[in-house]
Design a protein around this nucleic acid. Structure first.
Lengths: 150, 150
DNA sequence: TATTATTTGTTTACATGTTAATTAATATAG
DNA sequence: CTATATTAATTAACATGTAAACAAATAATA
């Protein structure tokens, strides 16, 4: 039996708890939360994105996104634009002020990313991603090896 | 430069998002949140734990723990007990009702854990834990290789 | 011993996560 | 064309996360 402390959720949480403070400390200099950073990060590379696409790219749940975008919009960092073809759709776009942040934030985040990755070899890093992908794909598939246990 | 989608926070979040629903679906049968489960899981094996110890073992921030324990206490699943030696300390203990849940929940969680782990080989799993530990230890250590760049 | 510092748990204020329901717009079936 | 289903975003209700401040108790120091 797998011990509680070594279950996948716990080891992932533990790693996140260690890593996130470094990022948060940086984001705080710009009055950004980690989630707000994620939204901006996507808008810097994609220009015009629907709420649904933003949820997928940022891994943020859409109900959370509403408030996050509200607060970014209030600070004039992003804008909402209702689609003309399909009026259910809302596009989110970085403003000039929002775009200006990219040059300031991205290089410093890259430093943190690099420091994190420097902890392990390239092979270990690749294996990490592969293993996590493998687990993700395995989940929510039928458990064939237990099929007879119905 | 490391792409946004392949940064450590994102790949960990992505894996968690895939895995947690399976656990949550189970916990919902017992009207438990994932966090409440974590607290109970610790109390089942440790009997008498202070709030601080509980925060460390569950990876839950202590301000969150206050509410989580409140709600468990309201349902008579746990009890708070003020220490007599040091009256700042609060012990948290599972009630009989709380202890009864163990036999029902733990085996079914073990099944999910096993299914997750079955996604990869034993070596891959070990490498996963090792790599994450390595990263965790590397973080918040002085970055020696950049020392001259001040 | 009176003062100051530290520790433990809690509170506060605000941001986000989770689930279900809702609204407005569009698509589809009859 | 009309009733119905579906979709995109939002709202609602509640639980949790984050950072800072706080009260009470204990420890450390002058």
């Amino acid at each position: 039996m797998i011990s509680f402390d070594h279950s996948l959720p716990m080891i992932l949480h533990r790693a996140l708890d260690k890593v996130l403070p470094d990022y948060r400390e940086l984001f705080a200099h710009f009055d950004l939360t980690e989630q707000q950073w994620r939204v901006l990060r996507v808008l810097w590379s994609e220009k015009k994105v629907t709420s649904a696409q933003l949820a997928e790219r940022t891994l943020l749940p859409s109900p959370s996104l509403v408030g996050i975008i509200d607060r970014l919009e209030r600070r004039d960092l992003v804008t909402r634009l209702r689609s003309l073809e399909d009026r259910r759709v809302v596009y989110v776009i970085a403003t000039a002020k929002g775009r200006d942040l990219e040059a300031e934030v991205v290089p410093r985040v890259a430093e943190i990313d690099a420091n994190v990755r420097a902890a392990v070899t390239a092979q270990e890093w690749k294996a990490l991603e592969t293993t996590l992908d493998k687990i993700a794909k395995h989940i929510s598939e039928p458990k064939l090896d237990e099929a007879s246990d119905g």
